[in-house]
Amino acid sequence: MVQFVSPRAIASVSDMALLARSVATGYLQGIQHSVHRGVGIEFSQYRSYEPGDPVGRIDWRLYARSDRYFVREAERDSQTTLWLVLDASQSMAMRSSQGTLTKFDFGRYVVATLAYVAQMQDDNVGLWIINDSAPCVIPPATGIKQWHRILHALEGVAASGVFPSPERFSTQLSRVQRAGLTLVVTDLYEHAEEQRQLLRRSATRHNDVTALRLACADELQFPYKGAVRFQDLETGEQVLVSSRAARAHYLAQREAWLQSTRQQLRQRGIPVTDINIDEPIELALASVLRSRQRSIGGP
């Protein structure tokens, strides 16, 4: 039986490197291998079959000759560049009343884990943390040192400010547009259309963009009672409502917003994966990777 790492456990461990490695080499081991394989690769060598390798990759002829299982190792023609974009605006500081991780904390663990997976696959991986302060960019590179750089950057940033307008990061955006794959970890909360513009402008024919939309349990369930004063993390605006009367309206509003943003981004070929930050991180990452598999026509 698979044991997931709960958000509470993540909060108690607080070792991002250890946790990302554990998640990546544990639950994701059987999933992540197929993400970047299949197209544009050349044979490199055989290696012994390991649990988790798909049976279809076993070279049966070699098995007939040697009576041992071997799988074909491939070497890519060119490495994939993965940009991990993390929304660090103040709205990402939201968390559930019973939760232990904010959206930003959860996003950092997701980014760290995906970066680890990428570097394990020898992919170029870069990091872009966006808020209205000075941009934090780790240019794409490979190797464990790059992962450590990413970890260092993630640990040094806190959610603050608002999401800037796309004009402020046009230079960085042009670099992202040339990457092969971009994962944007965000809550998709925006004041105008700054996040959707970022996603739309990042999505080019050279770059597949996926949005990981983070939400906490309170946002999904609206479990409040009595009079509640909601206050915006970024603007400070307050709204005093009766939770009983506001619940249905909120859920309807939220559903409409979800459908609207999903529809708009899908029209630009940008899938949106919704992640509940109060669920185990492996489930979130697995849904991300499976979503990627579907989008590239994998199994």
Binding site: A93, M94, K103, G226, F230, Q231, S242, A245, H249, Q253
Partner: peptide, 19 residues
């Protein structure tokens, strides 16, 4: 009232009359 910090206040706004 109970204060709750949220990321997008727009979703919580009700029609004034209803609120």
């Amino acid at each position: 009232g109970q204060r709750v910090w949220v990321g997008n206040i727009a979703l919580y706004r009700q029609p004034r009359r209803q609120r």
